[in-house]
């Protein structure tokens, strides 16, 4: 349904997303994890046709049976909301502060579906109920500043669902929310995806949130997809050195009791820092920081290695290990 084939996003200064291949089918719930600068947001914005104007797109981005790589604004405007919709990190600023939230949700219904005002209002009301907004009739008339953060995020979700998209992209949808509100939003997204047979692309650096929200996971680093597979398997038995480092760097107060000196052990970290766009190595993006680096890594981009029927990783060392 939605397919990326060797899709790249490059700028004058470097390649932000390199030869990404990904297929998303109806009902899929896929997580994308990675640090800032890993390319996960660039991937999401590309799927909305909202990559920066200065970006140079190559490869294939197939949506609704068409390659959208070279599509213009008008082509994308016809697909947004109806095929792909997106919710963003910051619910406090994602809504026009001068418009009643009901009007904001009715806008796409009237524009894309051509509904009358009364029809759009009834539909908005049903959407508010579906996303669990209490006393929806009164809420329709309220302004964003009159709602709590969790309520606003529900309004943003209702807005994204308005035209029955086939894919919902959620870019860090819970990062700005309180922990218990975040959990309820995640469960809501999962329920909506299942009920509507809608694909969900859940982007986060919060591994616990991704574990709860998704069935499959894609790990990104430096603009590359480095590992993918079923979420539970990847998070319990990571194979790519970067995924292993990322999981090792999580604080876990229960598993790591205080030592004799009363201090918890230092968290393991990945040495070095994420290189900037200009300084990305030309081969494996992780070379230079990788604990199992081979001579080939710095200069050659690793291809995908099949680890099991459902799991892939892009790593030279892993490839040698598997083929040995």
């Amino acid at each position: 349904m939605i397919e990326l084939q060797d899709f790249s996003v490059s700028f004058k200064s470097g390649t932000a997303l390199r030869q990404a291949s990904l297929a998303i089918r109806p009902g899929d719930r896929t997580g994308i994890v990675g640090e800032s600068g890993s390319g996960k947001t660039m991937l999401a914005m590309s799927l909305m046709g909202m990559a920066p104007a200065a970006a140079d797109l190559s490869g294939k981005l197939v949506l609704d049976g068409r390659d959208m790589t070279g599509a213009d604004d008008r082509g994308w405007e016809a697909l947004r909301a109806r095929k792909v919709a997106m919710i963003f990190q910051e619910p406090m600023t994602a809504l026009n502060p001068l418009r009643r939230v009901g009007d904001t949700v009715m806008d796409p219904l009237r524009l894309h579906l051509g509904l009358s005002k009364a029809e759009a209002r009834a539909r908005a009301l049903a959407l508010f109920e579906e996303v669990g907004i209490p006393s929806p009739v009164e809420r329709l008339r309220q302004f964003p500043h009159e709602l709590s953060g969790g309520q606003r995020q529900r309004v943003v979700i209702a807005l994204a669902l308005a035209c029955d998209p086939e894919l919902l992209i959620a870019d860090e949808p819970t990062t700005a929310l309180d922990a218990n509100v975040a959990l309820r939003i995640i469960d809501l997204l999962v329920r909506l995806a299942e009920e509507r047979q809608m694909a969900l692309l859940f982007i986060s650096h919060d591994l616990a949130a991704v574990a709860r929200a998704t069935r499959d996971i894609v790990v990104m680093y430096g603009g590359d997809i480095v590992e993918r597979g079923p979420t539970a398997e990847v998070l319990t038995t990571p194979r790519h050195p970067y995924t292993q480092g990322l999981l090792g760097a999580r604080p876990n107060p229960v598993a790591e009791p205080r030592g004799a000196d009363g201090k918890r052990p230092r968290l393991p970290t990945i040495p070095g820092s994420v290189p900037t766009l200009q300084d990305l190595p030309s081969g494996c993006r992780f070379s230079g920081r990788c604990p199992v680096e081979l001579p080939v890594c710095a200069g050659t981009r690793p291809g995908s290695t099949l680890i099991s029927a459902t799991r892939l990783a892009n790593c030279h060392a892993l490839k040698q290990e598997v083929s040995a």
């Binding site: 909202m50 697909l79 963003f88």
Partner: peptide, 23 residues
Amino acid sequence: DFVRTARATGFSRRRILWRHVLP
């Protein structure tokens, strides 16, 4: 951010300018 939200909802730049940006 809400301008980005409006773009993501499939509104044209012109419509966004008069409906969201100007007010």
